[in-house]
Design a protein around this nucleic acid. Structure first.
Length: 770
RNA sequence: GCCCGAGUGGCGGAAUUGGUAUACGCGCACGACUUAAAAUCGUGUCUCGUAAGGGAUGUGGGUUCGACCCCCACCUCGGGCACCA
């Protein structure tokens, strides 16, 4: 079935490339640089997924093209290895997560190498390696020192069945991701990172980047910037005031009541004046106990209680309005209080209707003027909230903080980093929702770095987003022991940040935002050269199983890349995954169709035998230059599917050609090389080349050869194509008109009818209106 | 509900962004080579029609000499957010 021995060829060249280190990036030099980045994989036990290959091949193609264009290219790889599946597997099997990680990364490395990616393996990093996470901890300490890391009592998600605290990303639709029991709330002290302090810059600086528009939009929606007014509603017979936030100050004359979030501070303060405080307290407690499922349940019927005995005053007209608490007002957004305008707001209207509150229609006023008049001010608010940074888990970076009864929280001195994970017998979290580290008293008990008294280590660990928030910096200088990366290396590779970063849309609001935040912090510390980490960000679509459903182990519809590589070869797999469909869209896998990509490569290997030291047929030469142009442009816009198809067209043409010149065939091999690195290298060197094709120069298309002298265009009568005509490309409008009107078919169609108009679009179409 | 995408043959998809709709690939059918099979090559393959010709890009309307592409209304699917005032 196969014409060339892919097993032999691919193994051979992978060995040669590794020995000659052609993909290793040297820091320094005068030439231009290119830093291409893919999201480093999580080395799961399932092994490499065909989706990894799709995104890795795309950036591999871009990196290889850049190298051939004369750039010094950095295309690194590593492992985002802290994470829950590893920990859960460790719990189940009682194996050290570090051992599992080692096994898994070994498998991943081998698999990635078998596909022939041009990664610089000498820069491989692993977030679970102490030499790496030392710097993750170090960056955390710098944030702590600048007041960006703080401890805060907040509610966490608690799974009553697994008896563990869950991370937000482990809660899917209000239930535990592992056992599907409804998640409850528990209060706990948590480490937080003040990402909201950067909200404005995270929004604004998107303008500096070349991210795909949809990525910018999604980030902006998540940050949720909105301008509005803060206005105070005085409480009657009290010195207290209720500060509300509204984007519709212009509707203030329609405000007929005020609502506080149940958790609002004022509720406690005003307690002595509230006549129904028992009812109020019962409501607050009920809200607190509500699970996420209850709060977001389908009917979303509004609930709330009036604070009887107190009234607020609408500052716009001096009228008294009632005060309520209701859980449809969120404590964490705005001021935690709103003025309700049932006439203009659907939620307020629902509430007002249910509790018989007045709904009045008043004329609108100017927002700015009224805000001024009532003594309010225009403010900007964000939906973004601070980042809950602690996890009650074993398999993460220990947070380098010590708690001392006398000194409070004390950062671990930098020279004591890294704080290593102790060996434990069980990785199961404890009953009270604390990390398994909490029961290792030998590790927990320590001395306070400040007063040398007794102290305890922080037992929470960092989320898996920590290590990935700065890994791209480490690649520039992965073995540095003194700094997370030298300024020289950072400046050399990241003059504009990472030049091109491709990844999944699912990381747009978490990883992408988190790493931008860390980077901005490091920029403020003058430790990195740019305020934005990534210049360009693009995204790939998912590969679905046959039939368009998700690939999953439990359904048993996964595809193992290993088998495809064994059967058809890595080059075929790469070509197939690029040809499968538009890169940014989800596509369904089809094992049946792979053969087409293999046939394409077989054809090329066969054509090689017919290549001679002659001048190619003119038509073929033209097609070649058109294809060089098309492929060169398509790679830049990530239209890999059409570049493959245009090369297929060219190869089909070669088959029919009499003369295929060696020079032209080599140029074709060069543009195919990034897609199919093994077979092109084999054929290239068979043609007498001694240097690797991947170190050769990207071919240039000849401008004269991409235009035809004669072209065939359609001839329309009244907008319908009736025939076609072949004309010289530079024919003038008058000549083509007379030529067309002389045409037999055309005159038949026109008959006696008078010609009203003739429209000629150069090189495209001619339309005769009768 | 809001914000992004997408809807084209039996299937994956292409269309120079307003100019010959269905490139390329899979599949299927027939033929060549072969004792035979595989591989390979050739021909055909949106639809109705013997043909001339007509009809088709989710649906209905509009703009235009001309619409898969632009505008309006709607339907379906995928992704994100979701009581954010």
């Amino acid at each position: 079935m196969n014409n060339y021995d892919h097993k032999k060829i691919e193994k051979k060249w992978q060995g040669v490339w590794e020995k000659s280190k052609i993909y290793e990036a040297k820091t320094g030099g005068k030439g231009k640089t290119f830093y291409g980045l893919i999201e480093f994989p999580y080395p799961s036990g399932a092994g490499l997924h065909v989706g990894h290959i799709r995104s890795n091949t795309a950036m591999d193609i871009i990196s290889r093209k850049r190298r051939m264009e004369g750039y010094n290219v950095l295309y690194p790889i590593g492992w985002d290895a802290f994470g829950l599946p590893t920990e859960n597997y460790a719990i189940k099997m009682g194996i050290d997560p570090a051992k599992i990680t080692k096994t898994n990364t070994d498998v991943f490395r081998k698999q990635l190498k078998s596909v022939g990616f041009g990664f610089d393996w000498s820069r491989e990093i692993d977030t679970t390696n102490p030499a790496y996470f030392k710097w993750t901890q170090w960056i955390f300490l710098q944030m702590y020192k600048k007041g960006l890391a703080y401890k805060h009592r907040t509610t966490i998600n608690w799974c009553p069945k697994c008896k563990i605290g869950l991370a937000n990303e482990e809660v899917v639709g209000g239930v535990c991701d592992r056992c599907e029991s409804p998640v409850e709330k528990r209060e706990k002290e948590q480490w937080m990172l003040a990402i909201t302090k950067y909200a404005d810059r995270l929004d604004k600086d998107l303008d500096k980047t070349k991210y795909l528009e949809k990525i910018k939009i999604q980030q902006r929606n998540w940050i949720g910037k909105s301008e509005g007014s803060e206005i105070e509603f005085p409480i009657k017979d009290s010195l207290e005031k209720i500060k509300v936030f509204t984007t519709r100050a212009d509707t203030i004359f329609g405000a007929t009541y005020v609502v506080l979030a149940p958790e609002h501070d004022l509720v406690t303060k005003l307690k002595p004046q509230i006549s129904n405080s028992k009812e109020v307290e019962a409501y607050i407690k009920a809200v607190k106990d509500k699970t996420d499922i209850d709060r977001t349940s389908d009917d979303k019927e509004k609930t709330g209680v009036e604070l009887k005995g107190i009234r607020a005053i609408n500052p716009a007209n001096g009228e008294e309005v009632s005060i309520w608490i209701a859980d449809y007002v969120l404590a964490t957004y705005g001021t935690g209080a709103i003025m309700a305008v049932p006439q203009h707001d659907e939620r307020d209207r629902d509430f007002a209707t249910k509790f018989n509150l007045p709904i009045i229609d008043k004329p609108l006023v100017d927002t700015k003027e009224i805000t001024d008049k009532v003594g309010g001010k225009i403010v900007t608010k964000y939906k973004l909230r601070d980042w809950v940074f602690s996890r009650q888990r074993y398999w993460g970076e220990p947070i380098p903080i010590v708690h001392c009864d006398r000194c409070g929280y004390v950062p671990v001195p930098e020279k004591e980093l890294p704080i290593l994970l102790p060996k434990v017998k069980s990785y199961v979290p404890t009953d009270n929702g604390e990390s398994p580290l909490a029961i290792i008293s030998k590790w927990v008990n320590t001395t306070c770095p400040k007063c040398k008294g007794k102290a305890k280590r922080e037992t929470d660990t960092m989320p898996n987003w920590a290590g990935s928030s700065w890994y791209f910096l480490r690649y520039t200088d992965p073995k540095n022991k003194k700094e997370f990366a030298s300024k020289k290396a950072l400046k050399y590779w990241m003059k504009n940040g990472v030049d091109w970063y491709n990844g999944g849309m699912e990381h747009t609001t978490l990883h992408l935002l988190y790493s931008r935040f860390w980077h901005k912090f490091l920029y403020d510390m003058k430790l990195v050269p740019t305020s934005e980490p990534y210049m360009k960000r693009t995204s790939h679509g998912m590969i679905l199983a046959e039939g368009g459903v998700k690939m999953s182990k439990s359904i048993g519809n996964t595809v193992d890349p290993k088998e495809i590589v064994a059967l058809y070869g890595a080059d075929t797999l790469r070509i197939y995954e690029m040809f499968i469909g538009p890169f940014d869209q989800s596509v369904a896998w089809s094992t049946e169709s792979i053969i087409g990509s293999r046939r394409f490569l077989d054809k090329i290997a066969r054509i090689q035998d017919r290549v001679k030291n002659v001048k190619s047929d003119d038509v073929l030469e033209k097609s070649l230059h058109k294809t060089i142009k098309k492929v060169s442009e398509d790679i830049e816009s990530m239209n890999f599917n059409t570049s493959v198809s245009s090369m297929m067209v060219l190869v089909n043409e070669m088959e029919k050609s009499q003369n295929i010149g060696i020079k032209d065939f080599k140029m074709f091999l060069q543009i195919l090389a990034p897609f199919a690195p093994h077979i092109t290298e084999e054929l290239w060197q068979k043609l007498g080349e001694k240097k690797s094709i991947h170190k050769s120069s990207w071919p240039k298309w000849d401008k004269k050869k991409v235009v035809d002298e004669n072209i065939t265009i359609g001839v329309q009568i009244n907008g319908k194509v009736r025939t076609e005509i072949t004309i010289p490309v530079d024919i003038n409008e008058e000549d083509i008109k007379t030529l067309v009107l002389k045409d037999k078919k055309v005159s038949e169609w026109i008959g006696e009818k008078p010609i009203r108009r003739v429209i000629y679009i150069k090189g495209r179409i001619i339309n005769i209106v009768v």
